[in-house]
Design a protein around this nucleic acid. Structure first.
Lengths: 210, 210, 210, 210
DNA sequence: GATGAATGAGCATTCATTCAT
DNA sequence: GATGAATGAATGCTCATTCAT
């Protein structure tokens, strides 16, 4: 009959707050007191739930990683044995209109990328996120090659290229939105994939559920 | 009577120092005293030549902008009336081995991208750099379309896609180098461009000088 | 659960410390670290209780304002319907021996005057202090005129003149004490007021309590 | 045949510049580079002509002292053997409309008063200025007493009171101009002097040249 | 769990002064 | 005389972190 712990709720409030503050100000300029204010908590409480500021950032990143893995799992399971549809779905997951439209998420991700460069702990988690995407792309591509719908001698390189294109759109969208014709990201990546994997037919287009 | 000015030298020393320190620690954690030490100068002197820390960052970015424009100008002039060669040269300029191999330059650029998100002054210059690349790509693509070597209804979107791929490789190389098979970036982007612009023949490969 | 606040105590310690340091060194040369040391606190704590150095100065001034208003209220209430006694009391409040004898208070006030010239926020509070004195003088003078113990066509001007004389003694006492024969301030202002308000009899002398 | 020294000109430029900058920002916030810019000179040159910042302030004060002495000499000589006229002239010199109307001069003087409190070197010169005024007032008052146009047992105290009133108007005018009815300063001090020195007739009014 | 006071190191920036040219 | 680069100490302020309550 001890009082129910609200630790999970608090941690979620705090990571969400960091995401928002970081989108506005970056990680270094996101002070604990900013984060606390954004979460509607006090400074001391933030440190009660997280040992350090860096730990909050790690938690944010782990959330994103889990969320991406969940999404990819679901999406691959939706079109089993259909590499083309799976590939299209992965692209849409990241670039379909509405995705890249959330400036906070974009800003947060680009900020994390920059942070990954200098903080070992962040880099490792960040790499697990990008590697996870790349590995799944490799599997899909290999399956497609086996089915002769894709043709490439270097699935690793192709997967990296697709991941890079997605990342690149994130950066461009976050920093110079006007340079990207509205709605062009997803379809351009499909065309690029067609060249990359020597497709005979374009990747299928599916309706996005929201 | 008057004393010879060494401002240009000093400013160059200081911006170079910021580039190095920023590659290691990011902009916020690049303290003026770090920069001064890296440049072999005193803190006070840094502020004598730059009004503020932000001004140093702007100077770094303006240098990169000027350097990119110079390179692009030279490169486009080298293959007049040959859009395919020009396009290949632009890709190689950014992605040929040796380019993406300089981790400091990559880290510096990714850091600037993140900074562009939150600092108006940086964003404007940063956008001028990316827009400059995009605009040149648009011109080259339009020329290629006119010559019927490229086919696309949306040169703007295609140019953005190419620029995004390049940016994406920068981020990936800076954060998760192992995910990119060595030397694959440039050739993969060529394949992607082939799909994007419906090329009949692959983009030409040229020997890199330098 | 919550923790008792000692903010009021700390703020009082800090404003008192600024008063002392400022009397010695002026406002600009009263560094936060001086103030903290004088208050027996750490620098960080000073900024925990005051957002900025200016805010401490404002607090000092508001204290003086409240204190003057309290004194004037009490003093006017002590001699209701007796403008001559009230006027004498106001003069004594500011100039009786013992008042002008506290060099720290004088120095602090003169410093505030100078600061009022250049800092909007200080000027506004400072003006409210002087205006408060002037307005009370105007009321007293008008009452005296009505009772025919004073005669003047311009109570505003007379009030300003009295306030100016008081201020002037403050400055002179703070900067050139030797120029003022000991104990002469109060009685000279009484004589001047007699001329200013065409008194038939001199202002009453009362025993100072305290 | 050496090049004519322009030291005097330069020193005058610099002290004038300090006066203006100080009126705006106070002494501590008047940086050498502000002063240099205001004077249209370079920072180095300022230090060529003055060993230190304090020395410039001393020079400003010595200028004011010399100027006041010159004015007082001239004015006393204009009405020999007429203490009432001399006294009126002294009051007008400081308070006649147009005098207190120069906000820069007022601000500068009040700033000097505050500075005199804490800097020995300034205090000494400042005191010589106020004492010089007081001594002349004492002489005039004594002459008037001898001629039976004034009556007071304490010429020193009376002189201090007059000087204080003048100083007080300076402070009030600099900090709370609105509290002083336009043009009232000079006439109110005359009335006060009438009370202070038991005049039978008001002090003479003279037409101001200029 | 929660609060908010307290700490102390670190930061960008200012500035009087010196000095080589 | 004059310039402007250079210095180094000082300043107000921020902030992650600790801790008593």
């Amino acid at each position: 009959m001890t009082r129910a712990s609200n630790t999970d709720l608090r941690r979620a409030q705090i990571t969400a707050a960091l995401r928002r503050v970081m989108a506005r100000n970056g990680y270094d300029r996101a002070s604990i007191s900013d984060i606390a204010a954004e979460a509607g908590l006090t400074q001391g409480l933030v440190h009660y739930h997280f040992k350090s500021k860096l730990e909050i950032l790690v938690a944010v990143l782990l959330d994103l990683a889990a969320s991406q893995d969940r999404d990819l799992d679901q999406l691959l399971a939706a079109s089993p044995d259909n590499p083309a549809a799976q590939l299209a779905a992965i692209i849409d997951l990241h670039l379909a209109t509405g995705r890249t439209a959330d400036p906070d998420a974009l800003a947060c991700w680009v900020t994390l990328s920059a942070e990954a460069i200098r903080t070992e702990e962040i880099r490792l988690v960040y790499q697990s996120v990008t590697s996870s995407l790349v590995h799944r792309l490799v599997s899909v591509i290999q399956a497609g090659v086996k089915q002769k719908v894709f043709r490439t001698a270097t699935p690793d390189a192709a997967a990296a290229a697709i991941a890079a294109s997605i990342q690149g759109y994130f950066v461009l969208a976050a920093t110079n939105r006007a340079a990207i014709p509205r709605g062009s990201a997803s379809s351009c990546v499909r065309s690029m994939v067609a060249g990359l994997l020597h497709l005979q037919r374009p990747l299928p287009t599916r309706r996005l559920r929201r």
